[in-house]
Design a protein around this nucleic acid. Sequence first.
DNA 1: GCCTATAGTGTCGAAAAGGATACCATCATG
DNA 2: CATGATGGTATCCTTTTCGACACTATAGGC
Lengths: 127, 127
Amino acid sequence: MAKARHSRFDCSPGCAVEAAVGLIDGKWKSVILFHLLSGTLRFNEIRRIIANVTPRMLTNQLRELEEDGLIIRTVYAQVPPKVEYSLSPLGRSMEPVLLALKGWGDAHIGLYGKPKGHDPRETDVAA
Amino acid sequence: MAKARHSRFDCSPGCAVEAAVGLIDGKWKSVILFHLLSGTLRFNEIRRIIANVTPRMLTNQLRELEEDGLIIRTVYAQVPPKVEYSLSPLGRSMEPVLLALKGWGDAHIGLYGKPKGHDPRETDVAA
DNA sequence: GCCTATAGTGTCGAAAAGGATACCATCATG
DNA sequence: CATGATGGTATCCTTTTCGACACTATAGGC
């Protein structure tokens, strides 16, 4: 069922940022979109590319992306079934965002998902 | 290569995307970062800017951002307390990402947090 | 008759995230 | 003495998210 994400929000500047993030959060959405940048994919292709995603979750995330108008789902009436997912124009317009994220991640993230930077564990104390 | 056993990060390209998103998800993080782009802010300033955030959540999100090395917390030893939050260099390096998100949001998001774009109500069915 | 493949669905339950509300210590001011 | 300001905590509770696992229909091939 549709979640009431961001349903009502008194928008200060920055709200747009949160709303945009809201569309690509969820455990797998950003990755799905990123891979769709390279072209159309079928359900099981995505499953194979993104190891460890369960079919339930994948369906779930794809449906939400579709609801938000970011991807297009095309069903071919044949057996065995064939369903293709591709970016909508709106989804394609996310490209700069996705590339920015990818670029940032490649530059700053170690293999464990934590940022590289220097040790952040000390708090500055000023007079 | 010392590639530690694949947790979830034996990653296909796109993993960096997910990791980057992981740092700015959470209900308020992206908005906090966005506002810090304009300069240092105190706890209650952020509270006032982002209406509807409870102190508990704000503390929570700020601590996580600090742990991830994106922001710096500076405590002034005085009464009443004064604590300033500012972007670390790592946090500042998020600027392109945040601006991309903001730009996308401004361009594509209506007042209800749903993307504008065309109507995704119907699913394409192909032969 | 059995196995394979596709694209899912259904149910269960644990865990995480988020929200409401109340409370704390300190000092200056009136 | 009471009030206000600051930067938080503590406790409780509800909602949302996520993962495991089992299960389905159809058709073709062996």
